[in-house]
Simulated scan of single mutants.
Amino acid sequence: MKQEKEHLTSEESLEIITRMIKTAQGNVKAGAFYFLLWGWISVIASLAHFYLDMYTDYPAPYMVWLIGIPGWIVTMLYSYKKASAARVKTYSDNLIMWTWIGFGFSILVVIFAGQHINFQITPLIMLFAGLCTFITGLIIRFKPLIIGGSSFWIFTPIAFYLPMVYSPLIMAVAIVFGYLIPAYILKKHNL
Protein backbone atom coordinates (compact mmCIF):
# COMPACT_ATOMS: atom_id res chain seq x y z
CA MET A 1 0.00 0.00 0.00
CA LYS A 2 1.20 3.47 -0.84
CA GLN A 3 2.16 5.58 2.14
CA GLU A 4 0.54 9.03 2.43
CA LYS A 5 2.74 12.10 2.74
CA GLU A 6 2.72 13.39 6.28
CA HIS A 7 3.35 17.03 5.40
CA LEU A 8 2.22 19.24 2.60
CA THR A 9 4.48 21.77 1.00
CA SER A 10 3.44 25.40 1.32
CA GLU A 11 2.53 25.40 -2.39
CA GLU A 12 0.30 22.33 -1.97
CA SER A 13 -1.37 23.85 1.09
CA LEU A 14 -1.98 27.10 -0.75
CA GLU A 15 -3.42 25.24 -3.75
CA ILE A 16 -5.82 23.24 -1.54
CA ILE A 17 -6.96 26.37 0.29
CA THR A 18 -7.43 28.23 -3.01
CA ARG A 19 -9.54 25.38 -4.45
CA MET A 20 -11.68 25.23 -1.29
CA ILE A 21 -12.30 28.98 -1.39
CA LYS A 22 -13.21 28.89 -5.09
CA THR A 23 -15.59 25.97 -4.50
CA ALA A 24 -17.32 27.74 -1.61
CA GLN A 25 -17.54 30.98 -3.60
CA GLY A 26 -19.07 29.19 -6.59
CA ASN A 27 -21.64 27.54 -4.33
CA VAL A 28 -22.54 30.90 -2.79
CA LYS A 29 -23.00 32.59 -6.15
CA ALA A 30 -25.18 29.68 -7.33
CA GLY A 31 -27.44 30.44 -4.34
CA ALA A 32 -28.48 33.68 -6.04
CA PHE A 33 -30.49 31.52 -8.44
CA TYR A 34 -32.81 30.34 -5.65
CA PHE A 35 -33.42 33.83 -4.28
CA LEU A 36 -34.14 35.16 -7.78
CA LEU A 37 -36.43 32.26 -8.70
CA TRP A 38 -38.44 32.35 -5.48
CA GLY A 39 -38.28 36.12 -5.28
CA TRP A 40 -39.96 36.54 -8.65
CA ILE A 41 -42.44 33.72 -8.04
CA SER A 42 -43.39 35.30 -4.72
CA VAL A 43 -43.67 38.85 -6.06
CA ILE A 44 -45.84 37.75 -9.00
CA ALA A 45 -48.06 35.55 -6.82
CA SER A 46 -48.34 38.22 -4.10
CA LEU A 47 -49.33 40.96 -6.54
CA ALA A 48 -51.79 38.66 -8.36
CA HIS A 49 -53.26 37.59 -5.01
CA PHE A 50 -53.65 41.23 -3.94
CA TYR A 51 -55.20 42.23 -7.27
CA LEU A 52 -57.67 39.33 -7.31
CA ASP A 53 -58.64 39.89 -3.68
CA MET A 54 -58.97 43.66 -3.95
CA TYR A 55 -60.37 44.25 -7.43
CA THR A 56 -62.28 41.12 -8.45
CA ASP A 57 -64.95 38.83 -7.10
CA TYR A 58 -62.77 35.76 -7.55
CA PRO A 59 -63.55 33.56 -4.53
CA ALA A 60 -60.10 31.98 -4.11
CA PRO A 61 -57.35 34.53 -4.85
CA TYR A 62 -54.85 32.44 -2.88
CA MET A 63 -54.94 29.86 -5.69
CA VAL A 64 -52.37 31.94 -7.60
CA TRP A 65 -49.80 30.51 -5.20
CA LEU A 66 -50.05 27.25 -7.11
CA ILE A 67 -47.43 28.78 -9.43
CA GLY A 68 -45.06 27.67 -6.69
CA ILE A 69 -45.46 24.05 -7.82
CA PRO A 70 -43.42 24.56 -11.01
CA GLY A 71 -41.01 26.55 -8.83
CA TRP A 72 -40.48 23.53 -6.58
CA ILE A 73 -39.91 21.34 -9.63
CA VAL A 74 -37.34 23.79 -11.04
CA THR A 75 -35.69 24.04 -7.60
CA MET A 76 -35.41 20.25 -7.28
CA LEU A 77 -34.04 19.82 -10.82
CA TYR A 78 -31.55 22.67 -10.39
CA SER A 79 -30.45 21.34 -6.98
CA TYR A 80 -29.99 17.85 -8.39
CA LYS A 81 -27.98 19.17 -11.33
CA LYS A 82 -25.78 21.29 -9.04
CA ALA A 83 -25.26 18.43 -6.59
CA SER A 84 -24.28 16.10 -9.43
CA ALA A 85 -21.79 18.62 -10.83
CA ALA A 86 -20.30 19.65 -7.49
CA ARG A 87 -17.29 17.74 -6.34
CA VAL A 88 -17.40 19.20 -2.86
CA LYS A 89 -20.37 19.96 -0.67
CA THR A 90 -19.33 22.11 2.25
CA TYR A 91 -20.71 22.14 5.76
CA SER A 92 -22.10 25.60 4.98
CA ASP A 93 -23.93 24.22 1.93
CA ASN A 94 -25.57 21.55 4.09
CA LEU A 95 -26.48 24.04 6.81
CA ILE A 96 -28.11 26.39 4.30
CA MET A 97 -29.94 23.52 2.58
CA TRP A 98 -31.40 22.20 5.84
CA THR A 99 -32.33 25.70 6.99
CA TRP A 100 -34.43 26.16 3.84
CA ILE A 101 -35.90 22.65 4.01
CA GLY A 102 -37.00 23.53 7.55
CA PHE A 103 -38.51 26.72 6.14
CA GLY A 104 -40.52 24.64 3.63
CA PHE A 105 -41.91 22.38 6.35
CA SER A 106 -42.71 25.41 8.53
CA ILE A 107 -44.70 26.96 5.68
CA LEU A 108 -46.70 23.75 5.27
CA VAL A 109 -47.54 23.73 8.99
CA VAL A 110 -48.64 27.39 8.83
CA ILE A 111 -50.78 26.79 5.73
CA PHE A 112 -52.52 23.74 7.19
CA ALA A 113 -53.08 25.55 10.50
CA GLY A 114 -54.53 28.57 8.68
CA GLN A 115 -57.96 28.60 10.27
CA HIS A 116 -56.46 28.18 13.75
CA ILE A 117 -54.29 31.27 13.30
CA ASN A 118 -57.04 33.39 11.77
CA PHE A 119 -55.47 32.93 8.31
CA GLN A 120 -52.57 35.23 9.22
CA ILE A 121 -50.39 33.08 6.98
CA THR A 122 -48.53 35.76 5.05
CA PRO A 123 -46.95 37.52 8.05
CA LEU A 124 -45.78 34.19 9.47
CA ILE A 125 -44.25 33.15 6.16
CA MET A 126 -42.49 36.53 6.02
CA LEU A 127 -41.20 35.99 9.56
CA PHE A 128 -39.74 32.57 8.69
CA ALA A 129 -38.37 33.85 5.36
CA GLY A 130 -36.62 36.65 7.22
CA LEU A 131 -35.06 34.23 9.67
CA CYS A 132 -33.81 31.86 6.94
CA THR A 133 -32.50 34.70 4.77
CA PHE A 134 -30.76 36.24 7.78
CA ILE A 135 -29.15 32.89 8.69
CA THR A 136 -28.07 32.32 5.08
CA GLY A 137 -26.50 35.78 5.00
CA LEU A 138 -24.63 35.07 8.24
CA ILE A 139 -23.37 31.69 7.00
CA ILE A 140 -22.03 33.05 3.72
CA ARG A 141 -20.99 36.35 5.34
CA PHE A 142 -22.91 38.45 2.84
CA LYS A 143 -24.21 41.65 4.36
CA PRO A 144 -26.95 42.38 1.77
CA LEU A 145 -28.64 39.06 2.65
CA ILE A 146 -28.33 39.80 6.37
CA ILE A 147 -29.97 43.18 5.80
CA GLY A 148 -32.52 41.59 3.44
CA GLY A 149 -33.47 39.04 6.08
CA SER A 150 -33.76 41.79 8.66
CA SER A 151 -36.04 43.79 6.37
CA PHE A 152 -38.64 41.02 6.60
CA TRP A 153 -38.81 41.71 10.33
CA ILE A 154 -39.77 45.31 9.56
CA PHE A 155 -42.54 44.33 7.14
CA THR A 156 -43.95 41.45 9.22
CA PRO A 157 -45.53 43.59 11.98
CA ILE A 158 -46.96 45.91 9.31
CA ALA A 159 -48.64 42.89 7.69
CA PHE A 160 -50.04 41.82 11.07
CA TYR A 161 -51.50 45.24 11.90
CA LEU A 162 -52.95 46.32 8.56
CA PRO A 163 -56.12 44.71 7.20
CA MET A 164 -55.37 41.22 5.90
CA VAL A 165 -56.20 42.19 2.31
CA TYR A 166 -52.95 44.22 2.21
CA SER A 167 -50.71 41.37 3.39
CA PRO A 168 -49.86 40.11 -0.12
CA LEU A 169 -48.92 43.63 -1.21
CA ILE A 170 -46.67 44.07 1.83
CA MET A 171 -45.15 40.67 1.13
CA ALA A 172 -44.32 41.69 -2.45
CA VAL A 173 -42.45 44.74 -1.16
CA ALA A 174 -40.70 42.65 1.51
CA ILE A 175 -39.60 40.11 -1.11
CA VAL A 176 -38.09 42.84 -3.26
CA PHE A 177 -36.00 44.09 -0.31
CA GLY A 178 -35.39 40.69 1.29
CA TYR A 179 -34.72 38.44 -1.71
CA LEU A 180 -34.43 40.23 -5.03
CA ILE A 181 -32.11 43.15 -4.26
CA PRO A 182 -29.67 40.97 -2.28
CA ALA A 183 -29.82 38.24 -4.95
CA TYR A 184 -28.95 40.63 -7.77
CA ILE A 185 -26.09 42.02 -5.67
CA LEU A 186 -24.93 38.47 -4.91
CA LYS A 187 -25.11 37.51 -8.58
CA LYS A 188 -22.90 40.44 -9.58
CA HIS A 189 -20.64 40.30 -6.53
CA ASN A 190 -17.08 39.27 -7.24
CA LEU A 191 -16.41 36.87 -4.43
Rank of each mutant, 00 (worst) to 15 (best):
H49C: 05
H49I: 01
H49W: 14
F50S: 03
F50G: 02
F50I: 09
F50K: 04
F50T: 05
Y51V: 11
Y51G: 13
L52Y: 12
L52T: 06
L52Q: 08
L52W: 09
L52H: 07
D53I: 04
T56M: 12
D57M: 08
D57N: 14
Y58M: 12
Y58G: 06
Y58V: 09
Y58P: 00
Y58N: 10
P59F: 07
P59Q: 14
P59G: 07
A60H: 10
A60E: 14
P61S: 03
P61I: 01
M63K: 03
V64S: 06
V64G: 03
V64F: 05
W65G: 02
W65M: 00
L66Q: 02
I67R: 10
I67V: 11
I67E: 01
G68V: 03
P70D: 00
P70A: 00
W72I: 13
W72E: 07
W72K: 09
W72S: 12
I73M: 00
I73Y: 01
I73H: 02
V74P: 09
V74D: 08
T75S: 15
M76W: 09
L77I: 08
L77V: 13
L77T: 10
L77Y: 06
Y78I: 08
Y78E: 14
S79D: 05
S79M: 11
S79W: 04
Y80G: 15
K81E: 12
K81C: 09
K81R: 14
K82A: 05
K82G: 02
K82Q: 11
A83Y: 12
A83I: 07
A83E: 04
S84I: 01
S84F: 03
A85S: 13
A86W: 03
R87E: 07
R87W: 01
V88R: 10
V88D: 07
K89Y: 09
T90R: 00
Y91L: 11
Y91P: 02
D93E: 11
D93A: 04
N94G: 10
N94L: 09
I96C: 03
I96V: 12
I96Q: 05
I96K: 00
M97T: 15
M97C: 06
